[in-house]
Simulated scan of single mutants.
Amino acid sequence: MRLAGKIAIVTGGGSGFGEGIVRKFVEEGARVVLMDRDLAAAERVAGEHGDSVKPIAGDVSALDGFNAARDLAISAFGGLHILVNNAGIGQSPMPMEEMDEGLFDRLFDVNIRSIYNGARAVLPHFKAQKQGAILNVASTGGVSPRPNLTWYNASKGWGIAATKGMAIELAPFGIRVNAINPVAGETPLLSTFIGGDTEEIRARIVSTIPIGRLSTPADMGNAAAFLCSDEASMITGVDLLVDGGKCI
């Protein structure tokens, strides 16, 4: 129960890594506002956890969604202590000059603007209570980029840099900011990143991961729960590799 008494917002919690984070947070005693563009997915996950999870529809590219999630956390649970910026999108492999402006803008809005929006929504509350934890879900692509995913890699590298900048600015207010860097995982986005989903392609990806498997939502939930708990009270500005050794 390392998160007992904590109240969190988790974006993109209706599937994939976000769902794993929601599940682990509840197991560790937290109550969660699950924000997702897909309300049906959010309600499905929330329905597995009773009164501990409140679903809400919201687009992370808009400030209004974060404000509504913050207000729901305070009205339904009585406070807010944690923000997990998990929602993100990927891109199919392609030469960098071939990405159209529409997809580039969407990458920017979901992977970059979302962190900005989340900060604007929660930081006044966190600063007032002199306590809070923010976790940004970045990627190994921001540390060790792969060819033909340049603009996705860049968006995640921005998230890592933002994490460090936020951490140093917010430390005097009692607010910690960290990131996790997943490797390719068992999520709905997998086929987008690897250009398809066949046993051959999976085997090629797994061959680059020393531990010998893809990451899972449970792996991300475990790492997120630790970094957002009081056990990690001396840890801020870290981008933790959850990658089975890929980036060594």
Rank of each mutant, 00 (worst) to 15 (best):
G12Y: 10
S15G: 08
R23M: 13
V26Q: 01
E28S: 02
E28I: 04
G29R: 11
D36T: 10
A42S: 10
E43F: 08
D51N: 14
P55A: 10
D59H: 10
V60D: 08
V60R: 08
D64A: 14
A69T: 08
A69S: 07
A76G: 11
G78D: 08
H81P: 05
N86E: 05
G88Q: 04
Q91A: 15
P95I: 06
E98V: 09
M99L: 14
F108Y: 15
F108Q: 13
D109K: 12
V110T: 14
N111E: 06
I112L: 02
I115L: 05
P124F: 08
F126P: 01
F126C: 02
Q131I: 04
G132N: 01
A133Q: 08
A133R: 09
I134L: 01
V137W: 01
A138N: 11
T140F: 12
G142P: 03
N148I: 00
N153L: 04
N153D: 13
K164S: 00
M166I: 00
I168K: 07
E169L: 00
G174C: 00
R176G: 04
V177N: 00
V177H: 00
P188C: 06
L190N: 01
T192A: 12
G195Q: 04
T198S: 09
E200G: 07
R204S: 13
I211L: 14
R213Q: 06
S215E: 14
P217D: 07
P217E: 08
D219W: 11
D219G: 12
M220E: 06
N222G: 13
A224I: 02
F226E: 04
F226A: 06
F226T: 03
M234Y: 15
T236S: 13
G245R: 03
